[in-house]
């Protein structure tokens, strides 16, 4: 008997269950096809403006910095301002995201824009968020050519562009949006839920920012 058959047989023996158990199977399939929504915290169930404010205040509480611009065309200037404020070289790494590509980077003449996945030699990476979660100040990023996951983790500074209209109240809503966008039962290779810059408390429980991922996380909120 293979390991698979042996484990399933043991589980069924312990549960006193049969493999072809119609009602049980129906219950399981029903749950996966139509997931119950569960308990949703009231704190994120706000108007679109309220969600943006809650997202920003919680993100800041967890050591993310937040800047706001009115229009996507203002993003390159906001990125340049961030780099200057941190005394960083004027260079960024970004993926093939059309929203980012459509921004007027040529206006920042001194800025070097590298595209593609990060090789570990970038000071700053720029990603576009898929969504955000107000209840915890969390960013939702999906992997792919547009926003390679290495950009989220290798650069010292991670800058994330977020449309104010993409801020959801709760985690379930944000993940349901991933499902809707990629199809039921399908997922992008990676979904990164990011709440603040990397940190560790492993030495004497003292929280220090900048463990293995970015030392700093900066959100540029567009349209808020």
């Amino acid at each position: 008997m293979s390991g698979r058959e042996a484990i399933l047989a043991k589980v069924r023996a312990s549960l006193k269950a049969q493999p072809e158990d119609g009602p049980r199977l129906a219950a399981v399939e029903r749950r996966m096809a139509k997931p119950p929504r569960g308990v949703i915290p009231a704190r994120g169930q706000l108007s679109p403006e309220g969600r943006v404010e809650l997202f920003a205040s919680l993100a800041e509480k967890f050591a993310t910095t937040v800047a706001r611009v009115r229009d996507p065309a203002d993003v390159p200037e906001a990125v340049a301002a961030y780099l200057r404020s941190r005394n960083l070289p004027s260079a960024i790494r970004l993926g093939a995201d059309k929203r980012l590509a459509g921004m007027p980077w040529q206006g920042q003449r001194a800025m070097e824009v590298r595209t593609g996945p990060s090789d570990g030699n970038d000071e700053a990476g720029v990603s576009h968020a898929f969504a955000a979660v107000a209840e915890t100040g969390t960013l939702v990023l999906v992997s792919g050519r547009d926003n390679p996951s290495t950009v989220n983790f290798l650069p010292e500074h991670h800058i994330v562009v977020l449309n104010a209209g993409d801020v959801d109240g709760d985690l379930e809503t944000a993940l349901a949006k991933v499902r809707k966008s990629f199809g039921r039962g399908k997922m992008p290779r990676t979904v990164n839920l990011i709440t603040g810059p990397s940190r560790s408390g492993d030495i004497e429980q003292k929280i220090i920012l900048g463990a293995h991922g970015p030392r700093a996380l900066h959100v540029i909120l567009v349209g808020a």
Binding site: M187, R189, T190, L193, I194, T195
Partner: peptide, 17 residues
């Protein structure tokens, strides 16, 4: 800080992973 959902290996549309 990081909650990461991983599904399968690198896809045709991926440049890392």
């Amino acid at each position: 800080v990081y909650t990461t959902l991983s599904t399968g290996p690198r896809r045709a549309t991926d440049v890392d992973g």
